[in-house]
Design a protein around this nucleic acid. Structure first.
Length: 293
DNA sequence: CGGGCCTCCTGAATGC
DNA sequence: TGCATTCAGGAGGCCC
């Protein structure tokens, strides 16, 4: 699942592959891939002639900027989106969109087995003192912990106010971006916090420790090229991430806790799986679940 | 508007 | 063997 470390690994790989190149043609094989484009009928036409100047990222979103343009191409990998170079004519599994260039070199292919990923063209909003130039349609996405403008206090304020499960807040991209199910479970395990603990019931100190663990686990995972768990995430060069070996919680339900040996619990949370240690991360007295009054 | 829930989708894994 | 069901999940959108 592409979360911040995986998306950043893809961003780094995309730069050398497309910066400085001019788009000569776009083929959309699957319209669902561009469903979030406000004018999807002309998606390809509006990209032809654009020269890619940089690849940016916020949380799990990527965007390509163009020379002399106030527009950008935004990409979200969803659960299984990948960017890969391909020879012209080469068949790529689950190919959704193909870009070719005016230099006769490799095409850039967006493939996506589960089709939750999306590509769309968007206007860049001007930079402000608090933020760089960024796509208008992702203005609701909060800064991620790796952003130079990231400030911890406003994020702690939000965590302190939310009356929902802490895991819900970790996954809320409008509070802090980049964390998905894997790194939410890992951060909570490291912090010894039960995922159903209400966010506003945690002290500022514990929330602060949690955010330190979020930062640490994202950094370590990035250092390992991300987490490849089900084979659906690979870097642009086709390499898998190596962080799955370091996971202590995600995917380890029923196995012993690396810290205390207790059997890790796997349960449903917001329609997805969630793993925690019943001993290290004890259930809170009051959970986020509704209590009859 | 905060919070909770539903939906989109494919293919591997599992069940009978 | 083969067909049907289950599961995984990011995030927008909808409802109360």
């Amino acid at each position: 699942m592409p979360e911040l470390p995986e998306v950043e690994t893809v961003r780094k790989g995309l730069g050398p592959l497309c910066e400085g190149r001019e788009i000569a043609g776009v083929i959309v094989y699957h319209p669902r891939a561009i469903r979030r484009d406000p004018k999807s009928k002309t998606f390809g036409q509006r990209l032809v002639g654009k020269k890619i100047s940089s690849v940016k990222r916020r949380g799990k979103y990527l965007w390509l900027t163009f020379a002399n343009s106030s527009q950008c191409l935004v990409a979200h990998l969803g659960l299984s989106g990948q960017f890969r170079p391909a020879r012209p004519g080469e068949v790529v599994a689950h190919e959704r969109v193909r870009f070719n260039f005016d230099d006769q070199m490799a095409d850039l292919v967006f493939c996506d087995q589960r089709t939750f990923g999306a590509l769309f063209i968007d206007d860049l909003l001007p930079a402000s003192p608090a933020d760089i130039e960024s796509p208008s349609l992702i203005s609701h996405i909060a800064l991620d912990p790796f952003d130079p403008n990231f400030a911890i206090d406003p994020v702690l304020d939000k965590f302190s106010r939310r009356n929902v499960a802490i895991k819900t807040v970790l996954l809320d991209q409008t509070v802090l971006s980049g964390v998905g199910n894997i790194y939410a479970d890992e951060s909570l395990w490291r912090s010894k916090i039960h995922p159903l603990t209400r966010s506003n019931h945690l002290s500022r100190k514990r929330l602060s420790v949690l955010l330190t663990h979020v930062n640490d686990v994202l950094s370590e995972a990035l250092g390992s090229g991300g987490t490849t768990f089900d084979g659906l995430y690979v870097a642009v060069n086709g390499e898998s991430g190596r962080f799955s070996r370091s996971l202590a919680a995600y995917g380890r339900g029923g196995q012993p806790c690396h810290r205390c040996g207790a059997t890790l619990c796997r349960e449903k949370f917001a329609n997805r799986s969630s793993v925690h240690c019943p001993k290290c991360q004890p259930a809170p007295k009051l959970t986020s679940q509704k209590v009859d009054s």
